[in-house]
Design a binder for these strands. Structure first.
Lengths: 314, 314
DNA sequence: CTGAAAGCGCTAACAA
DNA sequence: TTGTTAGCGCTTTCAG
């Protein structure tokens, strides 16, 4: 109802005067903050920066900003932080911290707060998730070590209360079965965190036990580099004495010693998908893809090799 | 004027009812958002996560939240993003993107918006900076390679429009002079970004030139790993053919091949100092430390060794 | 000392 | 279609 030209002129002058609609007044009236809460376990895990970056970009293009917080892997910390975000009147949430059975999420959903999970899923449905196809990732990994000639392969599993830990564990079992390899339960160790420290401890425990194995499939890259540490402490070499694989292909693992064989998927892609799904929710549309599952790809580097001929280190 | 007991009871009931003062109404009235803008060049540079984490923690304890944005090393992007932050009515700014002569910062200061620079300084004064003692870092580095027996040392310098690039360059020159080593200008290459790619290109250029050198001091870790790439392309080995050093000791460089000799300083410490300085400013106090300079420490790892006896690669 | 009311800068509903 | 106004939930001032 107003000419384009006038619109432009007004816009220009508004810019010149550096006028911005006051977000407080706007929000007070409309209850919208154009702010999204993004909750991750740990910023210093190199997996997250690429996804956060993609999330912030995608959100930013739509006029939203993200407020970032870490849970430090503590559910009670997650609760505190979530409460703060709600107090800040966030319009929606992107969570990378979800437990498999997470009442915090159920709560948000009940309150009608749009939520998207990234790199996590939750048991049951009703909440949009974007993650990697963990089963396929494990199939690729196990296939690779099997083809290298490994028959006894160990698994350093992640926390089973996290979907990534649980799905990769189940994926490992299934893939072993498909390859007709025995998944000896004494060759599986569960970690209570996705950390280098936990990975090191788990592999040391495995090496201390009498069982023999020539390859170890870790549930993520951090766990895998923890395995490097365990090997170093024992004076063993990777991949000469033991092949190790990771999951995530986080930045820089290609430069590690040895460069890590791992499962790659688009971390930035994961972030932008998640943000877009949330924007859909925010627009009141059901997101066009209910849950998004990214295709993984195995990146073979130098941490895997055929098994040593003279036996195993275990 | 109200009893403690009553206060507690009210607090408890408010919590139970999940009452939160509305930030919109509060902000509309008071013009305070309890929000800080944090601007960094690039989230995927591993230096930043630790500082951001520390910043967010410190700010969070004081009831503030951070909104994070990346400039992608583009001043015009920085301007856009800063404008958005101002539109969001941030109470203050923490900038890791400052140019040495940055009118954006001058502008903020004029507007009375509290600003603290982190890992950057700005020419002249009037703005609080927290960074590492770059000169001392370079003194440590040059001292180390000199003591290893290197006489001809090259420098891959960072962008000179950034204080880190400029100060480390000057620090290199000064340290060489102190060691009575010639700082041959043909052995110095300037990069226009702190990136692996720029570091690789710079070292390749140096290797292509006829000058000889046995060690290269890179202005940061990313540049240093770029040097690794250049060496690999030429079939040269570090440190056998060439010693290389970095700066920052970013996470995981200890796992690189070879583990990088580099200058360490507390990234988290830098972040918390910056946040605390900003909180001081916000409280109307002049920050108790005008500008904070962190002490560096050299971490000797395996990327440096005595010079090869048979000459140099250059 | 306590309680009422104005007003922050917007949007949306309504009246003209 | 256009202009006016109530009111969002706080803080702060001012009157009681």
């Amino acid at each position: 109802m107003v000419s384009d030209q006038v619109t432009r002129r007004v816009r220009r002058i508004a810019d010149e005067m550096r006028y911005h609609a006051d977000p407080f007044a706007y929000g007070l009236k409309t209850k919208r903050s154009f702010t999204i809460g993004v909750l991750i376990p740990d910023l210093c895990n190199p997996v997250f920066p690429p996804v956060i970056r993609a999330v912030e970009r995608t959100l930013g293009e739509a006029g939203y900003i993200a407020i970032l917080a870490e849970s430090d892997n503590h559910p009670e910390q997650a609760r505190v932080v979530l409460e703060k975000m709600k107090a800040r009147r966030v319009d929606g949430l992107i969570l990378a911290t979800a437990l498999r059975a997470d009442h915090l999420i159920a709560e948000c959903v009940e309150e009608g707060l749009p939520v998207v999970l990234v790199n996590r899923t939750v048991d049951g449905d009703g909440v949009v998730c974007v993650n990697c196809d963990e089963f396929e990732g494990m199939r690729l990994t196990v296939g690779h070590v099997a083809e290298l000639g490994h028959r006894t392969v160990a698994h350093i599993a992640g926390p089973q209360f996290l979907s990534t830990g649980h799905d990769r564990y189940r994926g490992f079992l299934r893939a072993m079965h498909e390859r007709e390899l025995a998944a000896d339960s004494s060759l599986i160790r569960f970690c209570d965190a996705f950390s280098e420290e936990a990975g090191r401890a788990a592999l040391e425990a495995l090496l201390d036990a009498s069982a023999r194995f020539t390859a170890v499939v870790a549930a993520n890259d951090l766990l895998a580099v923890g395995c490097y540490d365990a090997l170093e402490r024992r004076g063993l070499a990777c991949p000469r004495d033991l092949s190790v694989t990771g999951f995530n292909d986080m930045p820089f693992v290609n430069r590690f010693e040895p460069p890590l064989t791992t499962v790659h998927f688009g971390l930035d892609e994961m972030g932008s998908h998640a943000a877009r799904a949330l924007l859909d929710l925010l627009d009141g549309n059901a997101p066009n893809a209910e849950s998004i599952r990214l295709a993984p790809r195995l990146i073979v580097r130098e941490s895997t090799a055929p098994p040593p001929s003279g036996g195993s280190p275990g």
